[in-house]
């Protein structure tokens, strides 16, 4: 199954990964190969196979509904590129 270059553009945009124009050909071929592999796997009859999302035969551990976290926003905001009035600042996301 071969991908179009435009599809690679879409995928990189959705994943927020910038892809250099020179890499697009190579990436298109690589991702197409992965999809080919999936296509081959689709040939296997899985009618009686239970889907496995988690390989461990364990269930979720739960936490009591009790506040255990305290306020450290001043320390955390030292790591942020920009913070003001308690807010983290990011490039404008809406016009």
């Amino acid at each position: 199954m071969s991908l179009e270059k435009s599809e690679v553009d879409t995928i990189s945009r959705l994943a927020a990964i910038s892809v250099d124009a020179t890499e697009v050909d190579q990436l298109t071929a690589k991702i197409s190969n992965v999809l080919d592999l999936f296509q081959r796997m689709e040939a296997v009859d899985t009618t009686n196979v239970e889907p496995m999302s988690h390989p461990l035969d364990q269930v979720q551990r739960l936490r009591e509904d009790v506040v255990t976290e305290t306020d450290h926003h001043k320390q955390y905001q030292k790591l942020a590129p920009a913070a003001e009035k308690g807010m983290y600042l990011v490039p404008q996301v809406i016009d």
């Binding site: 506040v67 255990t68 976290e69 306020d71 450290h72 926003h73 905001q77 009035k85 308690g86």
Partner: peptide
């Protein structure tokens, strides 16, 4: 009282980011 996946309070109207771990 707390968030779905962490022990931060969810009380309404707190100062910005004081309940974000």
């Amino acid at each position: 009282k707390t968030k779905i996946f962490s022990g931060s309070s969810i009380s309404y109207g707190a100062e910005p980011n004081t309940q974000a771990n």
